[in-house]
Design a protein around this nucleic acid. Structure first.
Lengths: 174, 174
DNA sequence: CAGTTTATGTCAGCTATATTGACATTCCAA
DNA sequence: TTGGAATGTCAATATAGCTGACATAAACTG
């Protein structure tokens, strides 16, 4: 199977500090860790969303609208990496349910600027409280140094344009 | 919005070692990192799978059958967390495409033991090579200490039963 | 042996999320 | 002013999940 469980042999020293554990087995563990952890990561919001027959797509939209109020549909498409048709269906339900408000652009009337309504903010808080609680617990369990490593690896794992979006959000909130 | 970008205030000292960065802003960054990184994580296999009109469900099945050859359908259901109807649809196509073999159990004839065929192993290798390459690059970028932290946080983020499945796979390969 | 439980598979129907294609509106620049 | 680019919407379709109901066969239990 290309691997076989363990080549067994660490890939050598660099600097002096520590080994690089790059056996196929180590890498596979990382892959499985991502898989199982992502399930946990989405589990709590999923439960809340199911109650109101929304899905993850709604959560993602709500999250990023909250994160960057006034963002345009096009912006969202870049960040979420879906087609505008997909996003539109989600936005339509959120708007008609009164969670999101779409304002026609002032300088450019083609654009729609998205905002959460009060009710939308309420749901956002509920969802992100749940997700933050798990993240907080995991951070606490793992310890502060682990958190630095966690973010470092995740950031290195992103596609270049997603990393740009991520860093940009982190810095400017848009 | 419950948060607001930054409460600004770290949540205090514990022990003496280091601070716990548990502002809502720090937690939100972790959440977004998971989101963007997971996209990268699945991007390469997704491209390969699309060529043969398979999806992630097929990838997951192939991964875990390779990981634990001879596993039963029930085992897979537990690990993958889907319904048997969902899994069955995937297995049916993989079997009829000649990538997976289903053998009736010896001691318990109700069970079906799943194995990859040679062709199945070939696809598995192709998929996991792509995924491992990204993981390897991310590990190398982030450095060995970061990798430890990465795994630690991910493990802490899993649901208890998924953590059991993860550790079990790691130790026994079943 | 009879009845129950377990493991698996299948059919039907529903939902969420994604896709492509067609189209409408608005803006901007030649 | 006209044509192309940007933005957003609507329609139809596909995939992959889900629940529920049911069938089969084997294993277990009394």
């Amino acid at each position: 199977m290309t691997e076989g469980g363990s080549h067994g042999r660490p890939m050598g020293h660099f600097g002096g500090e520590s080994l690089l554990f790059l056996t196929d087995e180590q890498l596979r563990q990382g892959i499985e860790a991502m898989f199982f952890a992502y399930r946990g990561f989405t589990a709590d919001p999923d439960r809340i969303l199911a109650l109101m027959s929304y899905g993850r797509a709604h959560h993602r939209a709500i999250h990023f609208i909250n994160r960057a109020p006034g963002t345009t549909v096009n912006n969202m498409l870049t960040i979420l990496g879906v087609t505008k048709q997909s996003l539109n269906r989600v936005l339509r339900t959120l708007i008609s349910d009164g969670l999101v408000e779409s304002r026609v652009g002032v300088t450019d009337k083609r654009e729609r600027h998205l905002h959460l309504t009060e009710e939308g903010k309420k749901l956002e808080a509920q969802l992100s409280d749940a997700q933050r609680a798990r993240m907080r617990a995991a951070y606490k369990d793992a310890g502060p140094e682990a958190v630095q490593g966690f973010k470092k690896v995740l950031e290195a794992m992103m596609d270049a344009d997603m990393r740009r979006a991520y860093v940009n959000l982190r810095e400017t909130g848009s």
